Measured scan of single mutants.
Amino acid sequence: MASDGVVVEIGKVTGSVGTTVEIPVYFRGVPSKGIANCDFVFRYDPNVLEIIGIDPGDIIVDPNPTKSFDTAIYPDRKIIVFLFAEDSGTGAYAITKDGVFAKIRATVKSSAPGYITFDEVGGFADNDLVEQKVSFIDGGVNVGNATPTKGATPTNTATPTK
C-alpha cells in the first residue's frame, strides 16, 4: 500500500443473489490541510450489481451534504461517478479525517463476483488547492465463495486525467 498520499479503498462485503448490500468507500491518509475537492470514477458490471443509491459517509460534515457531495450512476456506461467540492468557501466542510467517504447500496443480481474497480481520477486537492497523490484499492461483493480481489494492489495516480 502507498505510504504517502490519500488511499481510496472500496470495501469488500459478502452478499447473495437478491440481497441488498452496503459497500463502503474509505479514505485513508487524509492530509493535515484536509480535502477540499476530489472527483473520480469507479467501474462495475450492472449485470452483477444493480447500484440503487449512494449515501455520504461520516467524513462528509456539510450539514447539507447534497451541496458538497454528488454522485451519478450510469449503468449503460458501467460507471459510478463521485464528486466532492467543499461548499462553505472557508474550508469548514472539508474532509479532515480518515473514514467512510461514501456507502454504495447495491442489489446482487448474479452469482458472479461483484467487482467495483477504479477507472479514472480527475483530481484530489487540499484546502490550499494543492494537488494530492492518490491511490485506489478495488473491492466489491463476495457472492458465495467468490472473492472480488482483482486489482487489490493500489493504483498510483500522480496526475489528473480527463
Rank of each mutant, 00 (worst) to 15 (best):
G123D: 00
D98I: 05
Y93I: 09
D126L: 02
Y26R: 11
N142S: 12
F84I: 01
N47A: 05
E86Y: 00
T96A: 11
S88V: 02
I35K: 01
F136V: 04
D138M: 09
P65C: 07
I104N: 01
A85N: 00
E131K: 01
S32N: 06
S3H: 05
T96L: 08
A72F: 00
P113Q: 04
F40N: 03
T149N: 13
V81I: 10
T96R: 12
F101Q: 11
A152R: 11
G139E: 05
E86H: 01
S110N: 05
P160E: 14
I104F: 15
T107L: 07
R28F: 11
E131I: 01
V48E: 03
V143K: 10
F136T: 03
A72P: 00
V81M: 01
D128W: 03
G151Y: 13
D4P: 07
F136Q: 05
Y26A: 05
N156L: 11
A125F: 00
I59A: 13
F118N: 10
V130H: 13
S32V: 08
P75S: 07
I73W: 04
K109H: 09
V8F: 00
Y26I: 02
L49F: 15
T96S: 10
V7T: 08
I137T: 11
I54C: 03
G53R: 06
A158S: 12
T66C: 11
V6R: 08
I52W: 03
K150M: 04
I35F: 03
I137F: 13
T96K: 07
G123T: 01
P75C: 04
P65S: 14
P75A: 06
D55Q: 06
V130Q: 09
R28D: 10
I51T: 09
V108W: 05
I80P: 00
G144I: 09
V130F: 09
A102D: 06
T96G: 11
E9G: 11
A152F: 10
D45R: 05
V81Q: 00
E120L: 01
V81S: 00
K109E: 04
I23P: 08
A85G: 00
D87P: 15
G114S: 06
A102I: 09
K109C: 08
E50H: 08
F27I: 04
F40Q: 03
A106T: 09
D45V: 05
P63F: 14
P154K: 12
V141Y: 11
